[in-house]
């Protein structure tokens, strides 16, 4: 344990470089550059608001805030896990030539997406003010769902990274799975629709929806629901432990498969 911490300390510069690399290369050669991390969620919010608000007859004035608060969290989860899934293979040339602790690769792709996510939170603050959803003391608690989300994302990322090395199919399967996850997170519909039907368990036991709903509570100035927080936290912690375990167990075999 102590050795691992020492090693992590030694390679902190590399982690830093890899995170920077992810951010830099994501928007390189686009005219607006990093501005896209603000513009993209905003434009998507507009589209979703028109389709699911105006066209579907939802008259809630703050509906864009409702959508954006969930969409930002979901897209962090989806881009970061997708990145982590590919991370080992896309760094194959490095892994084959020099020794580097391999967990740095999924970790860096989760962290760089987290940084972009933090930047895009500026959007949420702006839209909240424009539409009159003013912050309350509960907003200060938003670090709790966000912390859980980070844990869940890294855990899932480690599991996917390991599977991605051995089975190329994971990339495609995961894309489909992510679509399913998106539709079961109540991003652009009201959760009551499912909660009042026979399918309430889909939302109740979806840890990502748990995180999203609690983050929304913070945004809309409502207290956190203890059961949901505990459930999501435990689920995420288990995912993280499983992720660390399979990754550690399999990492020496990576080189034979990339």
């Amino acid at each position: 344990m102590k050795r691992q911490l020492q090693q992590f300390y030694k390679y902190r510069f590399l982690l830093n470089e890899l995170v920077k690399k992810g951010i830099r290369l994501k928007y390189r050669r686009s005219y607006l550059g990093i501005m896209w991390s603000l513009l993209e969620p905003l434009l998507e919010m507009v589209v979703l608001s028109i389709v699911f608000g105006t066209l579907f007859g939802n008259n809630d004035k703050t509906f864009p805030v409702y959508i954006l608060s969930a969409r930002l969290l979901y897209s962090l989860f989806s881009t970061a896990t997708k990145g982590a899934l590919r991370s080992v293979r896309s760094n194959a040339s490095m892994i084959k030539k020099v020794y580097v602790p391999k967990y740095l690769y999924p970790m860096s792709s989760v962290l760089f997406n987290f940084v972009i996510f933090l930047i895009s939170l500026i959007d949420l603050v702006g839209v909240m003010f424009v539409l009159g959803v003013y912050p309350t003391k509960y907003l200060l608690l938003s670090f709790i769902p966000l912390g859980i989300l980070l844990m869940l994302t890294y855990g899932a990322g480690m599991i996917l990274a390991t599977m991605g090395v051995f089975f190329r199919d994971m990339e495609y399967l995961w894309n489909v799975a992510l679509m399913l996850i998106m539709y079961t997170c109540a991003i652009f519909y009201k959760p009551e629709r499912l909660l009042d039907s026979g399918f309430w368990w889909i939302l109740k036991f979806n840890p990502l929806y748990g995180v999203i709903s609690q983050f929304r509570n913070c945004v809309y100035g409502q207290p956190l629901d203890m059961w949901t927080i505990c459930y999501s936290a435990i689920f995420s912690a288990v995912a993280l432990l499983v992720g660390l375990y399979v990754f550690k167990k399999k990492q020496d075999e990576f080189i034979l498969h990339i």
């Binding site: 390679y11 510069f13 590399l14 830093n16 470089e17 890899l18 690399k21 830099r24 290369l25 390189r28 040339s93 490095m94 084959k96 030539k97 020099v98 580097v100």
Partner: peptide, 19 residues
């Protein structure tokens, strides 16, 4: 082998140094 092709020479020096 640890270089990134999209990165400039300058950026690669820091990246490879960190590796």
């Amino acid at each position: 082998a640890g270089f990134d092709m999209q990165y400039t020479g300058r950026e690669n020096i820091y990246l490879y140094g960190a590796v």
